[in-house]
């Protein structure tokens, strides 16, 4: 264990917290989105919720794919926002402001995730 040092331990905890946050969003999107779709509303939240849930789980597990899935969700959300409200600033605020903050966190955590992802087989083989 001593090999991994303090910085990567902090990175590990940070990516787990970030993953949990994304997972929380994903679960809420799935639950609320299912209710909304059942009421005849938008399917965006269910679809996005699936991607976010997967992203959250994989990020917690230290898989780089989790980050890529979040980027996918964010890009999809951007396209959906343009589709729904065009370039209306008030329309962008709820759809993209919060997710963009998380996007920044995901990008910042990429090195830590990459490190975790590459050492993962080592851990597994060691077990």
């Amino acid at each position: 264990m001593a090999d991994y040092g303090r910085p990567s331990e902090i990175g590990r905890i940070a990516t787990i917290i970030l993953g949990a946050l994304i997972l929380l969003f994903g679960v809420i999107f799935l639950g609320g989105g299912a209710e909304l779709a059942a009421l005849g509303g938008s399917w965006y939240y269910i679809l996005c919720g699936i991607v976010l849930t997967a992203s959250g789980v994989l990020t917690i597990k230290g898989r780089l794919l989790g980050a890529w899935l979040f980027l996918l969700a964010w890009a999809g959300t951007l396209l959906w926002t343009i589709y729904e409200v065009g370039f209306d600033g008030w329309g962008w605020l709820p759809r993209l402001f919060g997710p963009t903050i998380i996007l920044v966190l995901v990008l910042v955590s990429l090195p830590a995730l990459r490190r975790r992802d590459t050492i993962r087989p080592t851990i597994r083989s060691a077990v």
Partner: peptide
């Protein structure tokens, strides 16, 4: 509308 996608989702459900 809302501060976040989640309170926006809440209002969408309320609307529907």
């Amino acid at each position: 509308w809302g501060m976040s996608p989640i309170d926006q989702l809440f209002c969408r459900i309320k609307y529907r």
